[in-house]
Design a protein around this nucleic acid. Structure first.
Lengths: 152, 152
DNA sequence: TATATTTAGTTAGCCTAGCTAACTAATAAT
DNA sequence: ATTATTAGTTAGCTAGGCTAACTAAATATA
């Protein structure tokens, strides 16, 4: 008996099952590592913004909003509070006086890197349960994911 | 010249570099897929809680709080609002009348699964840029990550 | 059995972080 | 010169985080 629906049967993409498993694994991985974030004393939005600035470099308010997938007013306030706490600095652009460039302060960078070290250390400890070959496979997988997960 | 620090030189763990790369890759991956979440009309905390209930099954308020790594009052309110919106239900336990079990409603499940489908579809599309062998490698990597990222 | 302790969850009240709408100031286009 | 566009802010609302203090049920203890 044919399917009664009006739409054609969904053609299964080759990588759908893999995508599903990879998606779940990534969620579970980050959920597990997130427990280390409490120790930093920074909220999730602050850690996330700081990570963009530290690992991706300084950028304008708008660019930061886009990276964080939030609206501009959210960034205005977040950055204002973070600046008050000495985590970031805003610099007015000479070329275009409307534009503000935000960058992490040394203190902000230090805090973020410390937190990241804790997360990565926990993951590294967990990876020791694997064989060297499996770790190698994961390293390669990380490369592939970076390749594929380019923000469009 | 020996290092002047008081602590012994940090012995590099075998998997530290791999852990670092994997961590970055996972962050970038989920950041990329997150753009699909707007379409669900649900906030990040709601999607996250719903995902625990749908994929991990019903659980008590406390267990949900622990899974979400938030304090009990946060869950009380989140669940109350989600119940009002028909996403979850609370059921008083017969055995212990203090305990409430939370579960997703069919509507909650439907919304979550739709959203997940969108995220996974986007990832699957991206994976088509890879060779079948590379996709196979990622499937294996997902298994390894699941193995390693057990919430302790 | 009566009381005390522990446990599950809620309420109150505060702060941060999300949003839209409406604004200012600077630049670019007409 | 004027108009339109762009970058960011302000105002004001809602959702979601916290701690402290509470209620009610279950468990332990005197």
């Amino acid at each position: 008996m044919p399917r009664p629906s009006r739409q054609p049967a969904p053609r299964p993409r080759p990588g759908f099952a893999t995508a599903d498993r990879l998606h779940s694994a990534a969620i579970r991985l980050l959920r597990t590592l997130r427990v280390e974030d409490r120790a930093s004393g920074l909220s999730a939005p602050r850690l996330s913004a700081l990570s963009v600035l530290v690992f991706g470099g300084p950028r304008t308010m708008s660019a930061l909003a886009q990276a964080e997938q939030v609206q501009p007013p959210t960034i205005t306030r977040l950055v204002a509070e973070m600046e008050k706490d000495g985590l970031v600095e805003r610099v007015r652009s000479e070329a275009d006086r409307r534009v503000l460039t935000v960058r992490a302060t040394p203190e902000g960078r230090r805090l973020l890197e410390e937190g990241r070290r804790r997360r990565v250390a926990r993951l590294a400890a967990a990876l020791e349960a694997l064989s060297a070959a499996d770790r190698k496979l994961l390293a390669r997988a990380a490369e592939l994911i970076e390749q594929v997960a380019r923000p469009e």
